[in-house]
C-alpha cells in the first residue's frame, strides 16, 4: 500500500470512530424531529419532514461509507418513509416512529465496532 493510500485508510478509521461517537446524538435528534412532526401539521410538519429526510439521508450515507450496513439500511428506511410522506404532501405515516425506534437498535454499541 502506498503512503498516500495508507494515510487515506488511517483517516477513514479516525472518521469511523468519530462517527460512532456522533450516531447516538444524531438518532436522538431524529427522534425529536419525528415527535415534533407527529404533533404538527401543514407547513410545520412538512418542514420537519424535510429535516428528517435530510438527517436520515446523511446517517444513511455515512453509515454506508463506513460499512455499517444495518444502521445504513434502517436510516434508509426512515429516509424513504419521510420522502414518501413529502411526496404525499405530508399526510402522517404511523410507521415513521416505529422505523426510528428500529434505528435506535442499530446504534453501534462499542465505538468503532461495525454493526
Amino acid at each position: 500500500m502506498s503512503a498516500e493510500a495508507a494515510a487515506l485508510a488511517n483517516r477513514l478509521r479516525e472518521l469511523t470512530v468519530q462517527f460512532a461517537a456522533e450516531v447516538p446524538q444524531a438518532v436522538s435528534e431524529l427522534l425529536d424531529l419525528v415527535a415534533q412532526a407527529a404533533r404538527s401539521d401543514g407547513a410545520p410538519r412538512r418542514e420537519r419532514l424535510v429535516q428528517i429526510e435530510l438527517l436520515a439521508h446523511r446517517l444513511n450515507g455515512r453509515a454506508a461509507m463506513y460499512e455499517w450496513s444495518r444502521l445504513s439500511r434502517r436510516a434508509a428506511a426512515v429516509e424513504a418513509a419521510a420522502a414518501a410522506m413529502l411526496a404525499g404532501k405530508g399526510s402522517w405515516n404511523a410507521r415513521l416512529p416505529a422505523l426510528c425506534e428500529a434505528l435506535t437498535r442499530a446504534i453501534p454499541t462499542r465505538t468503532g465496532s461495525p454493526v
Binding site: L8, R11, L15, G61, R62
Partner: peptide, 13 residues
C-alpha cells in the same frame, strides 16, 4: 465527512 473522504481520495496521488 463525505467531502473530506472524497477530497483525500481524489487528491491521493
Amino acid at each position: 465527512d463525505i467531502r473530506e473522504i472524497a477530497t483525500l481520495a481524489l487528491q491521493r496521488d
